[in-house]
Simulated scan of single mutants.
Amino acid sequence: MQEFGSVECNAEGDEESSDLLKTLVDNRHNLVKAATRITGCPSRAEDVVQDAFFRLANGPAQGLPLKARASYVFRIVHNLAIDSYRKQALEQRYTTCEEEGTNAALDSCTPETESLNQETLDLVELALKQLPERTRYAFVMYRVHGKQQKDIAKELGVSPTLVNFMIRDALIHCRHCVKYEPAR
Score class of each variant (00 low, 15 high):
Gln2His: 10
Glu3Phe: 14
Gly5Asn: 11
Glu8Lys: 14
Ala11Cys: 08
Gly13Gln: 13
Glu15Asn: 08
Ser18Trp: 09
Leu21Ile: 13
Thr23Trp: 00
Leu24Gln: 04
Val25Gln: 04
Asn27Asp: 12
Asn30Tyr: 08
Asn30Arg: 10
Ala35Gln: 02
Arg37Cys: 09
Arg37Asp: 09
Ile38Tyr: 01
Thr39Tyr: 02
Ala45Phe: 02
Asp51Arg: 10
Ala52Gln: 02
Phe54Arg: 07
Asn58Pro: 05
Pro60Glu: 15
Pro60Ser: 13
Ala61Arg: 02
Ala61Leu: 01
Ala61Lys: 02
Gln62Thr: 06
Gln62Gly: 00
Leu64Phe: 10
Lys67Leu: 12
Lys67Arg: 13
Lys67Trp: 08
Ala68Leu: 07
Ala68Gln: 12
Ser71Arg: 13
Leu80Ser: 04
Leu80Asn: 05
Leu80Trp: 04
Ile82Trp: 04
Asp83Arg: 05
Asp83Leu: 03
Ser84Asn: 08
Tyr85Gln: 11
Glu91Gly: 01
Gln92His: 11
Gln92Val: 00
Tyr94Gly: 12
Thr96Met: 09
Glu100Asn: 09
Thr102Met: 13
Ala104Met: 13
Ala104Leu: 15
Ala105Met: 05
Leu106Gly: 04
Cys109Asn: 10
Glu112Leu: 12
Glu112Trp: 09
Thr113Ala: 08
Glu114Thr: 08
Glu119Gln: 14
Val124Gln: 06
Glu125Tyr: 09
Ala127Met: 05
Leu128Ile: 09
Leu131Cys: 13
Pro132Thr: 07
Glu133Gln: 13
Glu133Leu: 11
Ala138Phe: 02
Met141Ala: 15
Met141Lys: 15
Arg143Trp: 03
His145Pro: 00
His145Phe: 15
Gly146Gln: 07
Lys147Ser: 07
Lys150Ala: 13
Asp151Pro: 05
Ala153Met: 03
Val158His: 00
Ser159Glu: 10
Thr161His: 08
Leu162Asp: 05
Leu162Arg: 13
Val163Trp: 03
Val163Ile: 10
Phe165Asn: 12
Ile167Pro: 02
Ile167Trp: 04
Arg168Ser: 10
Asp169Leu: 03
Asp169Asn: 15
His173Ile: 04
Val178Gln: 08
Lys179Pro: 00
Tyr180Gly: 00
Arg184Phe: 09
Arg184Trp: 08
Arg184Glu: 11
